[in-house]
Design a protein around this nucleic acid. Structure first.
Lengths: 169, 169
DNA sequence: AATATCTTTCATTTGTTTTTGAAAGTTTGG
DNA sequence: CCAAACTTTCAAAAACAAATGAAAGATATT
């Protein structure tokens, strides 16, 4: 397989994975493109490589910046803006985890803890089922949350290294 | 807050979380409804509670069965089918992790390992950037994969217990 | 202060996903 | 074998999400 073909495959795979996980396909593709580009790219270059419109490229790049995955660069003597992707995968993983935790997990945990406070008749099967499910999900969510918080502080080697050390017989 | 309102909030929150993670909102809502129901429900009951069509209820319930989250039950002397949700949250988490790993992570890992085999000119910046990104993502993906495999075999207490033991000072 | 270069916005259009509901299919019991 | 009870299918419609591109907004240059 030659580089150009491999590049396309990578962009396609990354886009698909993104869309399966609730991330806009194009955003994932732009990210993939920047990831494999040694140099920062202009909006124009992104538009051309992925055949997308100016508006789409602009908004997608802004979103990637919001996620902390891409940064604007300016070249001296040039007016154009250049976009460069963070290349360290562990940093990428942490940024994504951080952002999704904040946007999605935290709000749900808030609701769950409210709902696990709901009082009712202990003899009512409907109440018992509700209470038990919500309480258990709440506990699991808090475990996940604590694990994520730890991960956000950790170094990759330390994090996975430590996990594997335990799981190794 | 009273039970009926709490139930609605739970269904809504679960549906929202699902849709943010690439799971059909209705599927997550049906799952939530069954989770807080002490008894198995009929298709009819699901349709009524969530105001969805027969076709939608039928397909969604089948999907939940495919995911291993819901089972059909038959009551003696009745022709109707009843649907009952697995209530153990750790089992739910494992089923979801297992299914998504199989459907989404495994295919991507396959592609990544192909792409990290691509050979090219070591002096070509484009090749070097491609190779380095793909190789690193491949490594991270394999770490995640191994961790998931361990999780799929583990008991909740052991899994989180082991993780927390590490992180405790 | 006029022009050229580049960026951002957003009303419309296009594309994708989900839902509907009527019809076809299946199973059970008389 | 028939009909009632129930389930499944799937083409069409509705709902939703993403992309377009022209126009407006910036910012630098002469």
């Amino acid at each position: 397989m030659e580089l150009p073909e491999a590049k396309l495959k990578f962009i396609e795979a990354w886009g698909k994975l993104g869309s399966e996980w609730g991330i806009n396909r194009t955003m994932a593709q732009v990210h993939a493109l920047l990831l494999v580009s040694p140099e920062a790219l202009t909006t124009e270059a992104v538009m051309d490589e992925l055949s997308i419109s100016r508006g789409n490229a602009n908004m997608t790049l802004r979103d990637l910046i919001d996620w902390g995955l891409v940064e604007k660069q300016h070249k001296t003597g040039e007016r154009k803006e250049y976009f460069y992707a963070e290349k360290d995968t562990w940093t990428i993983a942490r940024r994504v985890a951080e952002e999704r935790k904040k946007r999605e997990l935290d709000p749900v945990i808030k609701i769950l803890s409210q709902l696990s406070e709901v009082k009712g008749d202990e003899k009512d099967a409907a109440f018992k089922a509700f209470n038990s499910s919500v309480t258990n999900i709440n506990k699991l969510a808090n475990n996940v949350n604590k694990t994520l918080e730890t991960m956000l502080k950790a170094e990759e080697n330390w994090f996975f290294g430590a996990i594997f050390k335990i799981f190794k017989k």
